[in-house]
Simulated assay, not measured.
Amino acid sequence: MQPMAINNQRRKLLKSSLGAITLSPWLTACSSAPNSDKNAVLISCSRTANGHFGAVVADNEGNPIHSVPLPARGHGVAITPNGELAVAFARRPGNYMQLFNIKTGVSYPITPSMPNRYFYGHGVFSSDGLTLYTTEGEKETSQGVIGVYQLQGTQLIKVKEFSGFGIGPHEVIRVDNMTLAIGVGGVHTKGRVPLNLESMKPALVYLSTSSGEVLERVGLADHKLSIRHLSLMDDGRVLCGQQYRGEPEDGVPLIAVHRRGEALQQLNAEPEEWLRFNHYIASIAVLGDHVVATSPRGNCYGVWNLKNKQLIEIASLADASGVVVNSRDNLLPQWHISSGTGKVITRSENGEMVSHQTNVMWDNHWSQIPPTVI
């Protein structure tokens, strides 16, 4: 299936699903007053039926508490470890990031990209919450940059950059206080049009947080597997979800796991099962011995057993978007899985599920708010 056909299919799914939902004043206004009766648990970027965009603070079931308007489509959200502030990043190739207060919904002045830079949709705070690391790229070359920003009051001030690790970085996570992991997609683009598919060099790269030195770099045998989305496991291993840039009929593995000093190991499924994900993994989250990965293009999510690396289930979910593990409030840890049609699924590791319908068109990623915010 060609990309344009995929996009049209997603639009039709969203339109038909939203037709049965009554849009609330919150959705059409794109902002709201905080609801103090609910606990803030989740944050995601969103889209609205009338063409607006926002970052949504939601409760445990995905019901919106308040939202922050965004000037264009957002993507990932970074949260300070104390749970007070968050930053929503523009979808690549983007030109803004928006800092806001999680508890009040108050937003602060937009931080624009530098004239010769794009934001690539993701970032992560240091453990003390004073430094923000963002994925960026040079406009003309897509050479990767990690922007390093200091949080000064309610301003993000760029203090330095790390570069020289590859083309087209996407998600960045903090492995520990001294190490970042970056999904380097390897794709040079003009806007969103790829220009170097035959020569792309994706990689999972580890950088020093202090110097930007490349500490380790690993890749996959198939150079058209663009490494994009990451998740950190409790034992320090990193999971990465891929976007395949090869032939439409190829059913190739889209998820791999990495332990420092070793090779990437791919998770297993049959080729026809991999094709169900339509060559794209959007979000990935680990709970115990299992991983859930979503695919909005495949309208599904998958569950793998990490002990034997085998796929155990593919579940249909129209425009499957974000997934995050909620381990708050003395509850058993569970996945929260969102959809662009507003559906929110809460799922335990043993497979028990509860489904909620919200009035939010969730975008590709969810972040859990630390329990310090009440």
Results as ranks from 00 to 15, higher is better:
residue 313 E to L: 12
residue 291 V to F: 12
residue 297 R to N: 12
residue 308 N to Q: 05
residue 281 I to C: 15
residue 300 C to T: 01
residue 326 N to F: 08
residue 319 D to W: 08
residue 322 G to C: 12
residue 324 V to T: 14
residue 313 E to F: 01
residue 289 D to I: 01
residue 323 V to F: 13
residue 295 S to Q: 10
residue 312 I to H: 12
residue 300 C to H: 08
residue 324 V to K: 11
residue 284 I to P: 00
residue 285 A to Y: 10
residue 282 A to H: 07
residue 321 S to H: 05
residue 276 R to P: 10
residue 323 V to I: 13
residue 319 D to I: 10
residue 313 E to N: 13
residue 317 L to I: 05
residue 325 V to E: 08
residue 277 F to Y: 14
residue 297 R to H: 09
residue 282 A to D: 03
residue 303 V to E: 04
residue 276 R to H: 13
residue 313 E to P: 04
residue 311 L to F: 06
residue 307 K to G: 03
residue 325 V to Q: 11
residue 313 E to V: 04
residue 310 Q to I: 02
residue 284 I to C: 07
residue 325 V to A: 08
residue 324 V to D: 04
residue 311 L to P: 06
residue 317 L to G: 02
residue 300 C to N: 12
residue 322 G to W: 07
residue 302 G to Y: 04
residue 276 R to G: 14
residue 316 S to K: 15
residue 292 V to S: 03
residue 316 S to L: 12
residue 318 A to E: 14
residue 316 S to H: 15
residue 298 G to T: 01
residue 310 Q to F: 01
residue 307 K to H: 11
residue 275 L to S: 14
residue 315 A to E: 14
residue 324 V to H: 10
residue 315 A to I: 04
residue 318 A to R: 13
residue 290 H to S: 14
residue 322 G to F: 06
residue 317 L to E: 12
residue 320 A to H: 08
residue 294 T to C: 10
residue 322 G to I: 09
residue 300 C to V: 03
residue 313 E to W: 00
residue 320 A to C: 14
residue 313 E to C: 10
residue 284 I to R: 04
residue 309 K to H: 12
residue 291 V to N: 01
residue 307 K to M: 06
residue 307 K to V: 08
residue 321 S to F: 02
residue 311 L to E: 06
residue 321 S to R: 05
residue 290 H to G: 05
residue 295 S to R: 07
residue 299 N to P: 11
residue 287 L to S: 15
residue 285 A to V: 06
residue 314 I to R: 07
residue 286 V to P: 11
residue 290 H to Y: 05
residue 324 V to F: 08
residue 301 Y to G: 00
residue 294 T to L: 10
residue 299 N to D: 15
residue 298 G to E: 03
residue 301 Y to W: 06
residue 310 Q to M: 03
residue 292 V to M: 07
residue 309 K to T: 02
residue 316 S to V: 06
residue 307 K to F: 02
residue 290 H to I: 00
residue 296 P to R: 07
residue 282 A to T: 09
residue 317 L to K: 09
residue 290 H to Q: 15
residue 325 V to I: 03
residue 277 F to D: 10
residue 317 L to Q: 08
residue 312 I to K: 11
residue 286 V to L: 05
residue 303 V to T: 09
residue 312 I to G: 12
residue 317 L to R: 03
residue 321 S to K: 05
residue 277 F to R: 07
residue 321 S to E: 11
residue 302 G to A: 15
residue 296 P to C: 13
residue 301 Y to N: 00
residue 297 R to F: 09
residue 325 V to F: 08
residue 291 V to M: 06
residue 306 L to D: 01
residue 288 G to S: 15
residue 299 N to R: 12
residue 283 S to R: 04
residue 320 A to F: 11
residue 308 N to H: 06
residue 318 A to Q: 13
residue 308 N to R: 00
residue 278 N to P: 02
residue 290 H to R: 13
residue 325 V to N: 09
residue 284 I to S: 05
residue 280 Y to A: 11
residue 280 Y to R: 12
residue 313 E to D: 12
residue 287 L to A: 15
residue 289 D to V: 00
residue 316 S to I: 05
residue 286 V to M: 13
residue 305 N to W: 00
residue 304 W to L: 01
residue 301 Y to Q: 01
residue 325 V to R: 11
residue 304 W to G: 00
residue 281 I to A: 10
residue 316 S to W: 13
residue 285 A to L: 06
residue 311 L to C: 06
residue 295 S to M: 09
